[in-house]
Design a protein around this nucleic acid. Structure first.
Length: 576
RNA sequence: CGGGGAGUAGCGCAGUCUGGGAGCGCACCUGCCUUGGGAGCAGGGGGUCGCAAGUUCGAAUCUUGUCUCCCCGACCA
């Protein structure tokens, strides 16, 4: 590609509304431009990277026996009403009507559409297993789009849906996809973790998220430093603590704690370690049900765990007014002793080993000391309710300690079971002629998000450092002073054609610009390898080869520079 | 949806408090010059000051309304 005839509108200054580094660099490198909140134009350079990733995904999906197809982005409301998600999905689903007043939505995902197709076409166990995928534009009317391609409203996604005769067969399909995902992200040269995850609104029995590790990641994840256990903190299990049954020594005593409403204040006021305090939180399912949750003072409530423990669909912290009504006590001094009858009390597992604690007295400006679970108050039930923290013991192995990371969720695989096939009536006849419900799985990869994540993980002060498999071009040829040194331009052009003949994707910087401008642009847009052709080197028959990632710079004979580029690129693209 | 901030040239911003000429840097165009890390000089083009209404002799500036965008939170594959 001749740079002078291409379109790469780079920016010297950082646009003020870009927060994270990948967003800033994609704008500066001329890869994307914003059209509206969370909606972007993919400029030529950005599209090239996106296509690179799409093709890796496509190859690995095909290898894993998934079949490509394409579904519409506009979907009829009827299907969503049938699955029940027309009500459940909320404002995130962009809805509209056509001229005949029929209702439609922009597809945020395609379980309904694919299941509809399958129920019409699949009648026999002989037709399965099946796995359909597509790479397509989705729309989700996010409350707060941000971070450029990382969380857009319109975005490109690869989604796949598997159909199997039973749960065991579905497990195999799931495993195939999981392995394909590992290959995909390994091929891109990204540092990532596959973690156990909550299934959220999609539902289903099990799921893993694929997380690209990056400081700016929106998710907190943990992994064991000894075994393979890794999970999103939303889901990460706590090792059941050994129960100390020694019992409390101190008597229960009510003490005035004027105005001490937070755990830190109370602990400091009473000169007690925070670990000896119990905090009391009240949550609501939003439909009038409440629960009192007890945690060790320094622990953090995991709302998803509590929601799942209660079997609720929704959860939120209760408001101050609701708490007063439900418990009869003001926020800041809540406790389980003498609480209103009928309010369920659930305690975190960590409480089992605690003795002589500080706990709210359910009365303004009062706390109890010497409180002991079991002796002084009853915990209705015990469950894992808290967030895992770094250094916690691994729930799966004996020796491991948990490490914490930030991650960007780029892929998610779900075992759906029969959730959608049942609602939509997707069934088949087995060998005995008996009707059964199809078992499903669904598998997503954020295409644009992965490209953004790769930038988040690979950049320096000069710009993007693309891994070769995702780079818009493998290498560039920079002709120095082409306007004046016509010999240089001709020689550089020849090198450019030779590289292209080797099957390499080359950006030929033939612009009549000063060298500094070209170097800056080349670094900014993240071309992995750069050959500089100048009159001085040419006098000795040499050109300069620079590696964007390592910064290594070599003065080499022309043919050698060409063969080295070829070799480096081939090595980076090889995968097995 | 709650809290905070911002809309002035393609980008980054000043001007607004205290009403009266629409400005600066980068980018762009022309010429000269320069050519290994975003050069220099000279000349030039480009803006309904987000939109609407109001106050005023006069509004980017004051008032009211409205739209959009950004940040934090809640929410969210």
């Amino acid at each position: 590609m001749f740079y002078s005839r291409y379109f790469i509108p780079t920016l010297k200054e950082t646009p003020s509304d870009a927060e994270v580094i990948s967003h800033q660099l994609m704008l500066r490198a001329g890869m994307i431009r914003k059209l509206s909140a969370g909606i972007y134009n993919y400029l030529p350079l950005g599209l090239r990277s996106i296509r690179k990733f799409e093709n890796i995904v496509r190859e690995e999906m095909n290898k894993a026996d998934a079949i490509e197809m394409l579904m519409p982005s506009v979907q009829p409301a009827e299907l969503w009403q049938e699955s029940g998600r027309w009500q459940f999905y909320g404002k995130e689903l962009l809805r509209f009507k056509d001229r005949k007043d029929n209702e439609f939505c922009m597809g945020p995902t395609h379980e309904e559409v694919i299941t509809d197709m399958v129920r019409r076409e699949i009648k026999s166990y002989r037709q399965m297993p099946l796995n359909f995928y597509q790479i397509q534009t989705k729309f989700r009317d996010e409350i707060r789009p941000r971070f450029g391609l990382m969380r857009g409203r319109e975005f490109i996604m690869k989604d796949a849906y598997s159909f199997d005769v039973d749960s065991a067969a579905a497990d195999l399909s799931y495993e195939k996809m999981y392995n394909a995902y590992v290959r995909i992200f390994e091929r891109c040269g990204l540092k990532f973790r596959a973690v156990e995850a909550d299934t959220g609104t999609i539902g289903g029995s099990a799921s893993h998220e694929f997380m690209v590790l990056a400081e700016s990641g929106e998710d907190a994840i943990v992994s064991c430093n000894a075994c393979h256990y890794a999970a999103n903190v939303e889901k990460a299990e706590v090792r059941v603590p050994a129960v100390a049954t020694s019992g409390g020594k101190l008597p229960l005593e009510k003490i005035a704690t004027p105005d001490k409403k937070t755990i830190m204040d109370v602990a400091a006021f009473l000169d007690m370690p925070v670990e000896s305090t119990i905090k009391t939180l009240v949550c609501s399912n939003g439909e009038g049900a409440f629960v009192m949750a007890l945690l060790r003072g320094d622990h953090e409530l995991n709302e998803i765990k509590l929601k799942n423990a209660m079997g609720w669909d929704e959860i939120r912290m209760a408001t101050d007014e609701e708490i007063l009504a439900a418990t009869g006590a003001p926020v800041g001094f809540l406790g389980p002793i003498g609480v209103k009858v009928g309010l369920p009390v659930i305690g975190d597992l960590a409480l089992n080993g605690m003795v002589d604690c500080v706990i709210g007295a359910n009365q303004i400006d009062m706390h109890y000391t010497g409180a002991n679970p079991g002796r002084d108050f009853v915990i209705g039930r015990s469950a894992d309710l808290r967030n895992v923290v770094a250094g916690d013991a691994c729930p799966r192995c004996e020796t491991g300690k948990m490490e914490m990371w930030r991650g960007i969720e780029v892929g998610h695989v779900f075992k759906l079971g029969t959730k959608y096939s049942e609602k939509l009536g997707a069934t088949y006849l087995d060998a005995d002629g008996k009707e059964n419900t199809i078992f499903m799985g669904c598998y997503g990869i954020g295409i644009g998000r992965t490209v953004a994540a790769s930038i988040e993980q690979n950049h320096d002060e000069n710009g993007i450092i693309f891994p070769i498999p995702l780079a818009p071009f493998h290498c560039s040829v920079v002709a120095l002073n082409p306007g004046k040194e016509t010999g240089v331009l001709a020689e550089a052009e020849e090198i450019y054609f030779k590289l292209e003949q080797l099957g390499l994707e080359v950006l030929f910087d033939d612009r009549d610009e000063r060298p500094g401008v070209k170097f800056k642009d080349n670094d900014l847009i993240g071309i992995p390898l750069r050959i500089v052709v100048g009159s001085k080197g040419l006098a000795e028959g040499k050109v300069e080869l620079k590696n964007r990632k390592t910064g290594e710079m070599l003065l080499l004979p022309i043919e050698e520079a060409i063969s080295q580029v070829k070799q480096i690129v081939d090595m980076a693209l090889a995968y097995e």
